[in-house]
Design a protein around this nucleic acid. Structure first.
Lengths: 341, 341
DNA sequence: TTGAAAGCGCTACCAT
DNA sequence: ATGGTAGCGCTTTCAA
């Protein structure tokens, strides 16, 4: 690796001059001849300034960190892709870390990334605790939450309107004639999930649907979770005729359970999935879903972070809520009893 | 951020002593008392050593870079997840970058990551050119290719046996009675794709199937690509009765086209997809696929890189080929003509 | 217009 | 057993 000294030696100038030529603003007074020699030397040595030395000196690394629960969940992968795209354009390198829904690992990552000198952080937090985030805020460390935030803790965040989405989904199912709607919610320590639950409950109460604890199942976000929970819920007496499911992989697990029970979609049971996917239309029964504007969420989170990075003054906290949309496909239908009647 | 000086001041010792206590090997001679004071000071100040300063000093950053074409393609996301997992355990931070199948961006990333002082690189290359990789090799910069490598360029690599997989898939379709098998290959500058093509052609020739240029379609890896190509291929006279498709999203696009043409799977046309997915069994017709051991590929690539990082001597280049498996589901059936006969 | 020197935070060597 | 010092590669003041 060529260093600034090598370039200086070759161009027969002082390293500081090299630095001035290569980074310096245009209006800095340097002979055109020197400029040329330096540039030529840099080029011939294939000189790339050492960014960690620069970062050390400048106190800024042009790197940001993204901590998401799971890269291989397309929901977060799409968010990551969007942030990666924008940060590249803005001259930032993005470090993507996966907490795997493990709170300790997330905390580790936060510390690790900070000690590596990243300028800011975007986090979809695990939400088992948030002391480390309180700490970040106290130290004025720029960060933005994405998809998940906290009731009890003000912070920059970009989230989607999960409560309204859940309400609308339930309302739609009610219009089809469903009265018993199951909800596979996902882990309930998560803000997003509590909001969905709230929307679900509001709709159930307002629309006089069955309000039954047995209709709500909390678990993880895996295929296996969806499978097991659906099997359990549908095996009880008086099972739901429709299911609202909080995530793609849970949904696929639910589909497996439904097929194994010999039921069919949407004849025996309707489903709405809480995240859309490129395959949703091509499933065994095209899946009605709720779309989150993932690319937009990523862009806005990055923009928000960048604003906080670019300024020295303390910006007020902003919480951005983006709109979801429902994609109606034929995994939903009137319940069988209604058909029969 | 507390620095080593702050800790030293608080513990009333020299910074070098702090360094020794905190990083030093056990058998270094330091009073137990000093040790305690330093540790206490570090703890009370919440001291985290600045990794970029360490990296600068040590010439090692404990960071590796991963460059993949697309994070939101589950194929690469799963590989990334596996590498992320292993590197975390090994004390490395992983920087994930997405080239978006753009050769220039990949080259940018390589330079950027190196100037940021990462220790090594894992790359699924775009494969429009490889001068930058030749350069890496010349400079003994540790790197490992994953999923894609080069015929004309020896380098560490972990790939899967795409040629055999394609052969087996075609053979399986032939056993079902298919004679005209279409191949949506994906971009043919990619090694992986050329290997699949080779396997396809070998099988076609050996098994006396229709060898027709019109049965091979090259394009990108998007949903749109699959849709457009399938529409074109099935609209020509004498269309194939089976399709081998090089990637999930292409497959979903193909399915869209097939449905739009009013055909059904597998009655009118059989499909085999070249990558498996959690949803493959729950598609409109459960999709027969080829599984790549993505987690294993990631692990082996990381291990290979680590070996090269840990040693000073130059290790011989290794090319690891892992086995794929076929998951037979009912997107494949005997062709209609055979049924009729 | 350019050179010299200091220093970002850390560790490794050389003292004592 | 501990302190001092140099230096990783860079930028930025201050001098000349």
């Amino acid at each position: 690796m060529a260093t600034i000294k090598d370039v200086a030696a070759l161009a027969k100038v002082h390293p500081s001059t090299v630095s001035r030529v290569l980074r310096g603003v245009e209006n800095i007074p340097i002979t055109e001849d020197t400029r040329k020699r330096v540039r030529a030397a840099a080029k011939s040595l294939n000189y790339q300034p050492d960014q960690r030395a620069r970062a050390l000196r400048l106190g800024k690394s042009n790197t940001i960190g993204l901590i998401i629960p799971d890269i291989s969940n397309p929901f977060f992968a799409d968010i990551a892709k969007s942030i990666e795209h924008d940060s590249f354009l803005a001259g930032y390198t993005l470090v993507v870390c996966a907490s795997n829904e493990n709170q300790e690992k997330e905390i580790d990552f936060v510390h690790d990334l900070i000690s590596r000198g990243i300028d800011g952080l975007i986090i979809a937090p695990v939400q088992d605790c948030h002391d480390h985030l309180i700490d970040l805020k106290k130290r004025d460390y720029p960060f933005v939450l994405i998809d998940r935030c906290f009731e009890e803790f003000e912070a920059n965040a970009v989230i989607s309107d999960n409560e309204a989405a859940a309400f609308d989904a339930v309302e739609y199912l009610k219009e089809l004639g469903h009265k018993r709607i199951g909800f596979l919610s996902g882990r309930s320590t998560i803000y997003t999930i509590r909001k969905r639950r709230q929307g679900y409950l509001n709709a159930v109460n307002l629309l006089h649907l069955d309000n039954d604890e047995e209709l709500i199942s909390r678990g993880g976000f895996t295929f296996e979770d969806g499978y097991v929970e659906t099997l359990a819920m549908l095996s009880r007496p008086n099972p739901p005729t429709a299911l609202l499911v909080s995530g793609n992989r849970i949904t696929f697990g639910a589909i497996k359970a439904i097929l194994e029970l010999g039921l069919s979609i949407p004849t025996d049971i309707s489903i709405i999935g809480f995240t859309d996917s490129i395959v949703s239309p091509y499933l065994i029964s095209p899946l009605t879903t709720i779309s989150h504007p993932l690319q937009q969420m990523g862009s806005r989170a990055f923009r928000l972070l960048l604003n906080n990075l670019d300024t020295k003054e303390k910006l007020p906290v902003s919480k951005i809520v983006v709109k979801t949309t429902m994609n109606v496909r034929n995994s939903t239908a009137s319940p069988r009893t209604a058909n029969v009647a």
